[in-house]
Structure formats: structure tokens, C-alpha cells
């Protein structure tokens, strides 16, 4: 792998589902995604935009309909099962729901140690020591190791999930809404923990989120998705300071600011069309305040308008 090659590069990735009664649901429909090592790359968008499916495609929990994924310089989709199994230790995931993603019958030590056991890492004693070290890294104590998930608060459960995700020292962690189920006062703790661990472990995050203020705080780069497509991709600062796609602008304007007297949130009219039957041309045109005739005919491709800032809109200018 050349030194400046991205850790992850997905091209033209798509996942189509055949639906009962005919029709094709285009959950992800032709997405390019490049993630540099050490970055936090956020995927944002509203329900049904495909961000969670895209995360699962990268993890190969879902097989794509088309496209390619290069990870650590290898063609991920071409790997045979045994090679893919070995590759899995470099890919990890943290789920949204710390209540649903931990087996209630297992102790914390079993949960965190399971990946080590499955991958045959070390002796029993070595694994126990490693679990204790992992618990310490996420702010838990050895005394927690023998307890069960129900004895913990949501924030502590998310710490357990993070310890498990880090057990095999992955390169890329897909964080699927990791703080959105947590209380406000606990979110900040977990965000700080994720940032500390990124520093100390050299992690790369693919951060799937709908909360734009969390993304603004944690991300380096952001891809904005709408109806299965990336509509804008930019370094965080550029995206929040000067969003260029009308959807990104609408999304940012819809967030209520926690400042009394700030401009009120601006609603975007209508609802997201069905991914079973997306609009022709630009998928956002049915809700876009600036759409013109051309938008119904030509499907806009992502164009680079400034360094690293790509926008899929006919009307966006450099």
C-alpha cells in the first residue's frame, strides 16, 4: 500500500433490494467514499438516506449489488472467506443501542474477550489481562468484568461496546450513531473517550450520525447523503462554513440552535421521496428551492469545486 493511499476507498457502491410485489429499493445507489487513515469521516443524512447501509457495506455485513471496496490496499470484495475472516480484525463496529447490542447473559469480561477468543489470541490468562487493560482504557474497572450488561447505565454499556470494538486493535471502526441513544450529559463523556482512543490507538472512524452538532465537533471530513447518494463531501470546516448543495444548506438551517433569539429553524417543505421510485435527474429536486428544468433531466455527478470539496448539483459554482 503506497504511503499516501487512503485506508478505505469505495467506488460506485450500490445496494439494491428486490421488494415483494416487484420494484427495487435503492438503499445505496452509486456512492464513492474515500477515508484517509487517522480521520474521522462522518456520514450524515436523514432516515432512509442510506448512511447505515453504507456503513454495513463497508463492514461487508451486507454484500453490495455493485461497486468495489479497497481497504488496506486490498480488494475487500474479492477476498475469499478465510482471507475475509482474517481481514475482519482490522474492521470493527460500535452500535447505536448499548441496550440491544450486548448479550445480556454474558459477563462484561466474556463480551469484551469474545473477539480475542474467536481469533485465538493468547492464552486464557493473557486474554484476561487484555480484557482488564481494555476496560481500563474505556474508563471501567476490573471489578466491572464479572458483571452483566443490565447492571450498567447506558453510558457504561456504550463503554463496554467500545472496549469490545477495540479488542483486536482494528484500523477502521464504523461508529453507527454511537451517542444518539445516550443522555445529553453522558454524550460528551463518550465523544471525549472516542477522541482519546483515536489518538492513543491511531484509529480511523467512519462516523454515521444524524446529529450535526456532534459531527461538527468530531469529524474531519463529512459526506452528506440523500436518497442513496452522496450529494456533498467536504472538509468539516468548509462544509459548515459554506455548504454548497441546497440539501446541505437546508439540513443545516433546520437545526434549532440552543441560543434564544437565534434565527428559528427553517423547515424544508415536503418529505423524502420513496427510494423505490426516486425522482428522475437530481433526487433532491422535488424539495429543492432552486431547482430548474435541467434538474429533472440530468442526474448531477459529484464535481470538485474547491480542494477536497465535491458537490452533486448543477447549479453549484466554484
Amino acid at each position: 500500500m503506497p504511503p499516501d493511499a487512503p485506508l478505505l476507498a469505495a467506488q460506485n457502491l450500490a445496494k439494491h433490494y428486490k421488494v415483494r410485489g416487484g420494484g427495487v429499493l435503492r438503499a445505496v445507489d452509486g456512492v464513492d467514499l474515500t477515508v484517509r487513515a487517522g480521520d474521522t469521516h462522518a456520514l450524515v443524512g436523514e432516515s432512509g438516506c442510506g448512511k447505515t447501509t453504507l456503513g454495513r457495506l463497508i463492514l461487508r455485513l451486507v454484500e453490495p449489488t455493485t461497486g468495489s471496496i479497497r481497504f488496506r490496499g486490498e480488494d475487500l470484495l474479492a477476498l475469499k472467506p478465510e482471507a475475509m475472516r482474517r481481514m475482519r480484525r482490522h474492521l470493527s463496529v460500535i452500535f447505536q443501542d448499548p441496550y440491544g447490542s450486548l448479550d445480556p447473559r454474558m459477563t462484561v469480561a466474556e463480551i469484551v474477550g469474545e473477539p480475542l477468543r474467536i481469533f485465538g489470541q493468547g492464552t486464557r490468562a493473557e486474554r484476561r489481562a487484555r480484557v482488564e487493560a481494555l476496560l481500563a482504557q474505556v474508563g471501567l474497572t476490573p471489578a466491572h468484568a464479572t458483571r452483566h450488561p443490565h447492571e450498567f447505565s447506558g453510558g457504561q454499556r456504550q463503554r463496554i461496546g467500545i472496549a469490545r470494538a477495540l479488542a483486536l486493535e482494528p484500523d477502521l471502526v464504523v461508529c453507527d450513531e454511537p451517542v444518539s441513544a445516550l443522555d445529553v450529559s453522558i454524550q460528551a463523556q463518550i465523544i471525549n473517550l472516542l477522541q482519546d482512543l483515536q489518538q492513543s490507538h491511531g484509529l480511523t472512524y467512519l462516523f454515521v450520525a444524524h446529529d450535526l452538532s456532534v459531527v461538527r465537533h468530531i469529524a474531519d471530513r463529512v459526506s452528506v447523503m440523500y436518497l442513496g447518494r452522496v450529494v456533498e463531501e467536504a472538509p468539516k470546516a468548509a462544509l459548515f462554513a459554506a455548504p454548497r448543495h441546497p440539501y446541505t444548506r437546508a439540513l443545516l438551517a433546520a437545526v434549532p440552535q440552543p441560543k434564544p433569539g437565534a434565527p428559528p429553524p427553517v423547515p424544508l417543505a415536503g418529505e423524502v421521496p420513496s427510494p423505490l421510485n426516486p425522482p428522475s435527474g437530481c433526487r433532491f429536486r422535488t424539495r429543492c428551492p432552486v431547482a430548474v428544468a435541467r434538474c429533472a433531466e440530468d442526474d448531477p455527478a459529484l464535481r470538485e469545486l474547491a480542494a477536497g470539496h465535491r458537490v452533486a448539483c448543477h447549479l453549484a459554482e466554484a
Binding site: Q187, A188, I191, R216, H217, V255, Q257
Partner: peptide
């Protein structure tokens, strides 16, 4: 208010509230 990202613009580390509810 200090701990929410929307009001903590520009800080690299959020001033979290320790402990749990």
C-alpha cells in the same frame, strides 16, 4: 450547556459532566 457540542464551538475537548444520572 457547556457539555453540548452545539455550544462548545471551537473547543477540542468537551467539558463533560462526570459520573452518571
Amino acid at each position: 450547556m457547556r457539555s453540548i457540542p452545539a455550544l462548545a464551538e471551537g473547543v477540542s475537548r468537551l467539558p463533560a459532566i462526570p459520573g452518571t444520572v
